[in-house]
Amino acid sequence: MIGTWVAAFFTLAIFSFLYRDNPIYRLAEHIFIGISTGYYIAVQWHSVVKPNVVDKVLLGDYLPLIPGVLGLLLLLRLIPKYQWIARYPIAIYIGVGAALNMIQYTQGFLIAQIQGTMLSPTSINNLLIILGTLTSLTYFFFALEHKHLSKVSKIGIGFLMLSFGAAYGTTVMGRLSLLISRFDFLLFEWLGGMF
């Protein structure tokens, strides 16, 4: 019951921004930011640091100390004299992340999508996919000035804008779904619970 009323209060407080900025909205915004930050700190400790580092070290497995220490080294950014040390864990983080992503995206996205575009141009759908892909690729060619490829890249922009329009439409749909859910809650769970 209390949870429903609190949720309804915050829902209406955020909605009040639609009229104009006001102290109630600001109160809700700051509470949201504060609670989410505190929540994530707690989650990081209970789900990440404690089970993966602390519990294992206490059992005698000292291998997790290496990433644990690297993580602590990042905090040295706060001390100007030792900021340079924090570059090493950042380097590892970026290097390993880039390597993982590169393989995954090359295999799952690049090659698979190239294969997916190798279609027989005997239907309008296939023809549109092939033309759209090739002309859009031309727009993103930075080595040459567009005056050499202007007409082709203009067709590419056309395809891009069509796809952006479709994406915009589906996003409007998604946002409406969120609004419908909030109204559903206010009508049936909050007001419905009252009466």
């Binding site: 590892i92 290097g95 390993v96 390597a99 993982l100 393989i103 995954q104």
Partner: peptide, 18 residues
């Protein structure tokens, strides 16, 4: 830092690919 990053990257690419 650059060479450390690069060497880890290369190792990661080889390991992950195969």
């Amino acid at each position: 830092m650059k060479s450390l990053s690069l060497s880890l990257f290369i190792i990661g690419v080889i390991f992950c690919t195969f």
